[in-house]
Simulated assay, not measured.
Amino acid sequence: MIPLLLTGCAEKELINDPATGSILPDENSESLVDGQYSAATKYYDSRGYAQQLNILIKNGIITRVNLKEIDKNKADRLSVEGSDKTWPNLAVANLSTLYLRLYNELMLSQNPDEIDAISGATQTSERYINLSAAILDLAKKGDHEPIKIDTLDTYSITSTADHDGYQGLLQATFNGPTLVSLNYDEIITEDGKSKRKSTDSSVSTEFNALFDTITETAISTQTLESPFPINEASPEKAKYGECLRLLREARAPF
């Protein structure tokens, strides 16, 4: 948890009225009702995290911001060991620095529209911007009830390999609760190169028709349940069913 408070030198940097030293809201903006507000994403993203943002408004000003990214074990991303907390090739070197930069931009501007998504951490930045905007909409009405927002999510799922070495590859995009695109193929690595079954001239016609049919059915019915029996003998259908199961696990509601 990394709260950033408007105290000390931080407050001096946010003075809008040099005559009185007061921090004043933009005269052209709608007034914000004081209080604590919270918004979160509805689903876990492709990395396995959901985002939750808390904002405190005092005297009509955003005075405290805290973002948490929470995995399916309810662990805060800041406490999880791994490589997704550091970016050695970016100006923003780690997750803590990323959060602080996002906090500063919102409190200095008091406007999510003026926050720039940070290259290399675009997904977290965009979620933060969207959650901030949703919270300010609540604050304009004085609605303190926590909400969850829709997001645009893309997942890439890979199944286990069959006896020939082919793996199922499923790519799905959701706009809020709606499955808007679904693509399925099978891949194999030969001589260090990835080869797709859909481009294999010896079998592509047969499998392209199958893959198109099953993905179009999923989109039209908006279901992630496999249309085939659990013990389906066809390796292609079995791998597709496994990919759908893994997608359902990844696309879990927060």
Rank of each mutant, 00 (worst) to 15 (best):
I135H: 01
K42S: 07
V65L: 11
S159Q: 07
K237N: 06
T63G: 05
K58V: 02
I230F: 14
E232R: 15
I57G: 08
S38Q: 15
D212V: 00
S156M: 07
S202E: 03
A172I: 02
Y103T: 01
I15W: 09
S132T: 01
Y37N: 04
D71Y: 06
E126I: 10
E81D: 11
G8M: 12
K197Q: 12
N28Y: 09
M107S: 04
L170C: 07
N104T: 11
F174I: 03
K72H: 10
Y99A: 08
A50G: 05
A209Y: 09
D200R: 09
S109V: 00
A139S: 05
I230Q: 14
T97E: 14
L136H: 02
N231C: 00
L67G: 10
E145Q: 13
E186C: 05
D185L: 02
Y44T: 04
L32F: 08
G35T: 05
V33K: 15
E11W: 13
T213L: 13
S79T: 14
D137L: 10
P88F: 13
A218I: 06
T7S: 11
A233L: 12
T41V: 07
G176C: 02
A134G: 00
D162Y: 08
D212F: 03
Y103C: 09
E114W: 05
F228L: 06
T173M: 01
Y44I: 02
N66H: 12
D84W: 14
A75L: 15
D113K: 15
A238C: 00
A40N: 05
